[in-house]
Structures are given as C-alpha cells and as structure tokens.
C-alpha cells in the first residue's frame, strides 16, 4: 500500500515538472542577454555607425559621408601594406611556435634530471607581460650598443646589427615567437604525455624507430593540438599591439604597421574616428572569414 502511494506521488511530481519546463524562460535569460548586448553588440553597432561618418576629433561635428571612409580605406596603399604585415607576423610566429614548440616539447617529454625545472623555465616567457618582454628584448638583447646579441657579434669580430632598423619585422616576429613558443610547447607537451604507451610499444615491435616513429606515430597524434595552437595563436596575434608599440611604433616607415596598429594610428594619431572605424569593421570581417576557415579545419581534425 505504501509503495502504491509513493508511486502516484512520483508520477504527479513528474507531471508538474514537465509543466514547469514550459514556463517562459526569456525573463530568466534576459539579464545576461542585455549585458551581452551592452558589452559587445552596442560598441560594434556604434563602430559601424561611425564608419559612415566624417568624424575627426579635431574638426567636429561628425557628418554622414556615405561610403567615403571605405573608398579611402581600399584605395590607400598603406591598408594593403598593413594587411601584408599582419599576415607576415601571424604566419611567422605560427611557423616558429609550431616548429620550435614541437621540438622543445619532444625534448621536455624525455626523462632527465631537473626535468621539472627545465619545463618551468621553458614555459616561463609566456607569463611575462608583452610590454615588459618587448622592453627586455629592445634594450637588453637586441640593442646594438648595450645588447647581448651585439656583444656576441663584436666578440666574433662582426659589426653589431641595429635590429629594429635593418630587420624590423623579423625583430617583432622574434619577440612574439619568444612569447608564444612556450604556449605551443605547453599544449604539445600535454598532448605528448597523453600518447598511448602501448601504441609506442606496438610501433617498436613494428620496427618504427627515430624519425619513422616521429613521422608516423607522434606527429599524427600531434595534428589535433597543433591545429588548436594555430587557431588560438592566430586570434591573439591578429590583435597583437603591445610589442609593436613598445619597440618600433609601427616603423620604420610602415614596416611593422599591422592592421591593428594602423587602426590605432588612424584613431589616436590622426584623430580620425571615422576612418579608424571603417578599418576596424574591415578587420572584423577579415578576422571572421579567417576564423571560419580555421574553425572548420580544426573541427574536421577534432572529428577525425
């Protein structure tokens, strides 16, 4: 008898539970949605709005000027230079962090005394703030007079190089690589540690040694984490700013002016909010197209 009562109780509860699920959930979601709108959509809409105005902080007021900002943007040669610079920066740092990240991860995955300390040191650059890293590189390492590299070169009887004037983009790529190789190392090292030891032993039985083992067993296993590194680093590197600002200021000329830095110049050097907004909108479209391809590639890898 008792059991029968309990059963009917449960069934009514289930029914009322189902009823509760039909309650309108919109009021519950609304606070979060409103916050999100205020936080990200409104600024975006505002940027799009400004991009159609001739809005210079020095010569107010702002006047609607149709698509003129966009026409200037696409006819200006510096826009295309900036895009090229952005691409060089992203691809350069990605190449460095994947190649060196993989090599360092493979090294650190071996057992040797002091491995934990070595791992910590290898990861450490990632925790240094960008401006600090940039200043260290600029003043202590790459400086032709007081820098370590210059000192080495004089020791070898060579002339020190003024890195930021002779190879400005390379210098920026080196500094960003120094910061992002540890990130790739960290992700690839964890991936290496999750490689099934039985698989490695099976490969040993199958006669795959050294490079063959790396090529047929280890690298295929790393394909997935590598695609994740590519995606995450691309997102961060497209908006890279601090190191350029601290070291080269986008120069010499426009040699290190990336799209991000170009927007900064337009907005805060030229005070032209209108054309900066137009470049910003263009950058958003560009980043989204890139993200679409990347995410598609990564998700294909994740499924495999």
């Amino acid at each position: 008898m008792d059991q029968g009562v309990a059963v009917t109780n449960i069934s009514t509860e289930v029914r009322s539970g189902r009823g509760a699920r039909q309650v309108n959930t919109l009021p519950l979601l609304l606070p979060a949605v409103i916050l999100l709108l205020l936080w990200s959509i409104l600024p975006l809409l505002r940027t799009i709005f400004y991009s159609f105005e001739n809005y210079n902080l020095m010569t107010p007021p702002a006047v609607f000027n149709g698509g003129l900002n966009y026409r200037y943007l696409f006819t200006d040669i510096s826009t295309w230079v900036a895009i090229k610079n952005s691409v060089v920066l992203v691809l350069g740092v990605l190449a460095a962090s994947i190649v060196f990240g993989t090599l360092i991860a493979l090294l650190l995955n071996n057992d040797f005394p002091g491995r934990n300390i070595a791992r910590l040191l290898a990861i450490a650059p990632f925790f240094v703030m960008s401006p600090v890293a940039a200043l260290i590189w600029k003043n202590l390492l790459l400086d032709p007079v007081s820098g370590l590299f210059g000192w080495f070169m004089t020791l070898l009887g060579l002339h020190p190089i003024a890195w930021f004037s002779t190879a400005p983009m390379l210098s920026v790529v080196i500094i960003y690589s120094w910061r992002w190789i540890p990130f790739a190392t960290l992700i690839l090292l964890t991936a290496l540690q999750s490689l099934d030891t039985d698989q490695l032993e099976a490969a040993r039985m199958d006669g795959a040694k050294g490079l063959a083992r790396l090529r047929y067993i280890v690298l295929p296993h790393l394909l997935r984490p590598i695609s994740i590194v590519i995606m995450l680093e691309s997102i961060f590197l497209l908006s890279a700013f601090a190191v350029i600002y601290t070291t080269t200021n986008g120069g010499p000329g426009d040699a290190t002016t990336t799209l991000t830095y170009l927007i900064f110049i337009k907005a805060l050097n030229d005070f032209s909010i209108g054309s900066a907004s137009a470049a910003g909108v263009f950058a958003i479209v560009l980043a989204n197209v890139l993200a679409m391809f990347l995410i598609r590639a990564v998700s294909r890898n994740l499924q495999a």
Binding site: D196, D198, Q199, E201, A202, A203, R204, M205, D206, G207, K209, Y216, I217, P220, H221, L223, A304
Partner: peptide
C-alpha cells in the same frame, strides 16, 4: 631489438594506430 626477434605482439588495449 624487439622488431628483429621475429615475434609479433597483440596488446590488451589493441594499440591500433588511430590515424
């Protein structure tokens, strides 16, 4: 070395190469 002994092993986890 294991690959020269002429013996083949079947592992408990199969250890197939997933890719």
């Amino acid at each position: 070395p294991p690959d020269k002994r002429g013996l083949a092993m079947v592992f408990q986890t199969y250890a197939l190469y997933p890719h």
